[in-house]
Structures are given as C-alpha cells and as structure tokens.
Design a protein around this nucleic acid. Structure first.
Lengths: 367, 367
DNA sequence: ATTCCACGTGGGAGCGCTCCCACACATCAC
DNA sequence: GTGATGTGTGGGAGCGCTCCCACGTGGAAT
C-alpha cells in the first residue's frame, strides 16, 4: 500500500495525495475529504524512508546522554528530562532516538555523532552532556547543523537551554545560612562540569555575602554520586572543625551527606543543615525531607526539543540561549519546620514551597 | 558526498562501493582497500534514508515503555533496562528509538505503534509494557512483525524475555519466613500486571509451604509506587493483627513500607522483616539495607534486543521465550546480619549475597 | 472579447541507495 | 579446442516519496 495505490483508489494523482498527507492548503475540500477517507480506510501511512529520502529530512532528533555520569542510573533527573524531550518532540511530530556509546571517551562520542549527522539519520541533536568535547560542538555549530545543549557551554557561545545555577545556588545557600549556621561547607560536583562550577560560584557568593572568607570555606569537588558525597561528608564531619551547614551540588549527593550524618549520629537539621540541588520527587526521599532547588527537568527537555525544531526550520544567526526558572524548596533538612509522624510527610506537596514554586510552570526567559 | 562520488574517486562502480560498505566478500582485497581508503578520507557515511528505502530495512528498533506506570520516574529499573537495550542494539548495529505516548490508553498506544510499524519506521519493537493490550500484540504476531515482550503474556503464546517471578518470589518469602516470622503479609502490584500476579502467587506458594492458610494471609494490591505501598503499610501495621513480615512487589514499594515502619517507630528487622523485589542499587538505598530479589534488568534489555534482531533476520515458527535468572540478595531488612556504623554500609557490595548472585552474569535458560 | 492571474491538479525527475542480471575474464575438465 | 563453471565488476531498474514545472480551468481586469 503506497501513495500510488491511494491515488488510484481516490481517483487523483500521487501529488494530490502527497499534498493531503502534508496538509498542503492548495487542495479543494472535496478532494481532501475523499483522499482522507481512502487513507483512513486503507490504514495508509507514508513510508518513512522514502519520505526522508525525498524531503531530505528524517523527522528524528537524536538525544545524547552522558554515560559515565553514572548519574543516569541514580538520578531521577534523567527519566524526567527524557520525558520532557519526548513532549517537545511529539508537539513537533518528531521521533526521538537515543544515542549512547559504551565509552564516554570524546573521540568515540564524536564518531557516533559524525555517523548520525553525516548519514542524515537525525535532523538535529539534543546534547545533555557537558562531557562532549567542545571541538565536536564547534564542528556542529560551524557546519550549521541544528543542535541544542542542555546546560550552557563555558563561553556561552553555543545554543543551549539552562538554569541559572549560580543564582539558584546562592539563593539556596543564603537561605541555609539564614538558619543561624556558622560553619558552611560545600560538596561540589566535578570541576569539569560547567553546572558544578556555577553552583560552586553561587555558594561562594552566598558565603561571602554572609561575611565569610570564601577562600577559607571548605569546598570539596567529587563525582556527582551519592557514594562520593557520603565519603567526603564523613571526612568533613569528623574533621577538627566540622561544618554545621553543607550545600551539596545534587540531591543524590545530599542524600549521601544525610547518610553520613546518620551514621555519625549527627542530627539533621539541629546539628547540621543540608541543602541539595535538583528537586527530585519528595515521594522518593520523603523520609529525608530534603531541602533543595527544584530545576524544571521536564521543561528543559521540552524546550530543548522545541527550540531545536525551530533551528531545523530556520537556522538562527545568533546562538539560541534560553534560561529557565528554578524554585527553592524549603523542607526539613535546611532547618525549616519539620513535619511529624504519619501521614503528614506524604500527604501534602506544597508545604514549605516558596512563592516562585507556587506560581506553577517555569517561566521562559531570554530569546 | 554520495556513493557515486566515492565510486568515481575510487575508480570503481557504485555497486562495488556498496559491496565494500556492506562487507560483501565478493570484492578483491585490492579494490576493497582502495575503496575503504577513499571512504575514510572523505568521511563518507551512506545516507540512512536511501539505504532504508532500497533495502526495506530501517536499522531501527522501537522501544515502548509504559507511561503511567509512573514507575519510570521512580524506579532505577528503567534506565538500566534501557541501557541493556542499547547494548543489544549496538551489538546488532541497530539504533534505538524511544516510543512514548502522552496517554496510556490502549487505543492511543495502538495508534502509535501502527504508525511506526506501518510506515516501516522501525524494523522491530521491544515492548516493555504489559499495559499494551493483547489485541495489539496479536496483530503484530499475526502479521509476523518482529517484536519482543519484556515480561511474559498471560497465556505464554507470544515472544518474550522474562524472569521466573513466581519462583523468585517464593524463594525470597521462604527466606524471609525463615527468620522466625509468624505473621506474613504482602503488598502487591496491580492485578492487571502479569508480573505482579506471578509474584503474588510465589508469595502464596511460600506461605502455604510454611503452613499458613493462603486465604487468611493479607495480600494488598496497590499501584507499583512507593507512596501507595506506604499508605497500605500504615493500614496493615496499625491493624489489630499487624504483620511481622512484609513482602513488597517492588523495591520502591519496600521503601514505602520501610518509611511507614519508621513513622510508626517499628524497628526493622527486629519487629518487622521486609523483602523487596527488583534489586536496585545498594548505593542508593544503603541506609535502608533492603533485602531483595535482584533481577537482571540490563540483561533483559540486551537479550530482548538480540533476540529481536534474530527475529528480524529469520521469523521463528515457534514463539521465542527466554527466561533469565534472578538472585536473592539478603541484606538487613529481612533479618540477616546488619552492618554497623561507617563506612561499612557502603564499602562492600557482595556481603550477604547468595551463591547464585556471586556467580556473575545471569544465565540464559530456554530457547 | 482578450489577457491575466489565481487556483487546483497532474506528471516527470530526482533523492541515494540495494538488488538483480549481465558480462568479461580466468580456470578447469574433457 | 570447446564448453562449463567460477569470480569480480558494472549498470539498469527500482524502492516510495517530494518537489518543481506544466497544464487546464474560471473569474476579474482590461
């Protein structure tokens, strides 16, 4: 069953069927309805390959997720983000292909991408990996191949969608310090990740504002993992001058810190305030009541896909750079009022959420 | 840069280049090397659409993941499973496309699939969704379209890869009861899911073996969610005859049970033994030290992809049905020896693991 | 009436491959 | 020497679409 068959059955030409399928307005209503009826009756769907070949467009976006980030196994951020990408793709009538390499070695990732780009397998690329070397992104950028980074590049010269990691971190840490903390510390992400550096900078902004010498405040970079943060927290908390406030660069890491505190019989939040970053489901970590920055993981994906679709249809002269809003979620671990006993912790969702959070969807600022 | 260009540069015909690209042995070594050199020098990659059109094969598998399962946001099982699918696809030189619908309504899922199948967008389908109605699977099966279910169909008439949910559950519950428990209960998954029913049956097998009347033992079906299990556990544990052993149909649910116990100040495992199912990373839930059945999530994906590739190349007369092995992981929550203080809980991985687990990769049994 | 220009429709010419058949040439048996 | 067989290579004919140009129409402008 191909377009020719449909044309014959509907008593029109191939071209007319093609126009109907592609919603071309230059078809009379009568003919359009007739053709549509035949298409529905025959359950016809245009052959994707033929369409892609003729139109030089595959209708597929590729999604590149970091592999060794390890995080993907351990961080609900990713599934939600992927869901957002799918939302955005669906709106543009695009399919989403998952690209992953066994190794995260830049050359291998580059090869993968070259292959998909050069074979025109995908029309555009969503790159959720700051590990991908900038050489590759430059190459895509220079040959005007449509792509969107999720998370800004260091020089802010590429297309990206991101959150204000620095500002959000500063806000969170100011709040944390507001609970009368006097010995702040941070367990940060790897220094190769721009987001980790931004969050660290925000932390330093806030501690400086609070009158501390940023150079004297402990900041420990580790991998984005619960276990790494756990180890680092143990070291910090058993040192001569243990912190009474720890800002972790991700929620998974904050959970590691909470674990460490628990094992050392340090009470949270009385003896130690903890602030995370990501805003993972309260449901999952309800017993931890983690205070955190909620970032709009789903929107990041949806916006990346939507903007990528724009880029496919009209290459932009200027880099496309979008900033999404975050919310500060003050729950228990920072020192805000804790809830007691069941069923409180699970019954309500909005408790302790700031005004920004209550306003609903994240606003899109910028281009 | 197309195949014709390469042919010209290498001084051969289109056909010969095609043969080289497709590893056809009927090319002399000299010519093969010459063509390969040109291809490498030019960075040529065959156009995917043209190839798919001519060969009537897209080189893409579709992966259908349940949506409302909600679990996907909350369960590390999915990312690991997807990773496995990617492993399997990579081995077969296939790309993986993620298919998801906003709604989980069977008609909508069916429409999605029809579209992808009928447009020949994908060569085969991995269906990780028991929610997909069997009518659809019948249709695929009857038109001999390649597919693999992950999780058996109720009548075991389709192609699938699965674990022995019933046997594994029975084994886990026998172990749990072995710790001198006298009031077992189960918080099971939704009765629409075959896996949930199988696990329930395994639970009933084990309690019957232990001399209980299966009809008198509480079994509460709820959605596969931490929150649902939490609520149900609260009810059970505050009833007149509270259980001293709870088998949860998933690890997420077991965590809900643990939470409930914590909020009721019930000590685990002293007053309540808990057994989960899935085998999520100890790292994540280390502070819970959950005993569980580890299922080979990654292998399930890899095997599904590999077998699907077989089916694409040679339709099977008989349904392809594969069973993978599981491990019982006895940690703390069932009553097995707990570890104390840091850094124990995170330092070791294999502690308390049974012989089967130590044997490494899951064995593949069956066809 | 003639010209012009929408408007709707039809058909040719690709898109870049794979697959099949044809063909040249070498090798072997008789 | 003749025919049969095998090996490596070339080229035609699609695969099922989209895109462009051409071709009737009929109504408005001249």
């Amino acid at each position: 069953m191909n377009i020719e068959d449909i044309a014959r059955l509907a008593g029109v030409s191939r071209s007319t069927v093609s126009r109907v399928v592609n919603d071309d307005p230059r078809v009379s209503a009568t003919v359009r309805e007739r053709v549509r009826a035949v298409i529905a009756a025959e359950g016809y769907h245009p052959n994707a390959a033929a369409r892609a070949l003729a139109s030089r467009r595959s209708g597929v976006f590729g999604l590149i997720i970091p592999q060794t980030f390890g995080a993907i196994y351990n961080d609900p951020w990713f599934p939600i983000f992927i869901q957002g990408c799918l939302d955005g793709c669906r709106a543009a009538d695009i399919s989403l292909m998952l690209l992953m390499e066994p190794s995260n070695e830049p050359a291998s990732v580059a090869r993968l991408i070259e292959r998909f780009v050069s074979s025109r397998h995908v029309d555009g690329l969503i790159i959720a990996s700051s590990l991908v070397d900038d050489v590759l992104v430059s190459r895509l950028h220079d040959r005007a191949f449509p792509y969107m980074l999720v998370g800004r590049d260091a020089h802010q010269r590429r297309n990206f969608v991101d959150i204000d990691n620095r500002g959000a971190a500063a806000r969170a840490v100011r709040h944390l310090m507001g609970h009368g903390r006097v010995r702040p510390a941070m367990i940060g992400g790897p220094e190769t990740a721009v987001a980790a550096l931004d969050r660290r900078q925000g932390f330093l902004d806030a501690v400086a504002d609070a009158g501390f010498d940023p150079a004297a405040v402990p900041v420990r970079p580790v991998a984005f993992s619960q276990r790494g943060a756990y180890r680092e927290a143990l070291t910090l908390l058993t040192s001569d001058d243990p912190p009474d406030a720890i800002f972790a660069a991700s929620d998974a890491m904050a959970i590691g810190v909470l674990q460490a505190a628990r094992h050392l019989n340090i009470r949270v939040p009385e003896q130690l305030g903890i602030m995370g970053f990501d805003g993972i489901e309260p449901d999952r970590i309800a017993q931890l009541e983690l205070s955190t920055i909620r970032q709009p993981a789903r929107d990041l994906g949806a916006v990346a896909a939507a903007k990528l679709d724009d880029l496919v249809h009209a290459r932009a002269a200027e880099p496309v750079q979008i900033w999404l809003e975050t919310d500060l979620q003050t729950r228990h671990s920072c020192g805000c009022q804790a809830t007691t006993g069941p069923p409180g912790p699970l019954a309500t969702g909005k408790r302790g959420v700031t005004a920004a959070a209550a306003s609903g969807k994240a606003a899109i600022t910028g281009a």
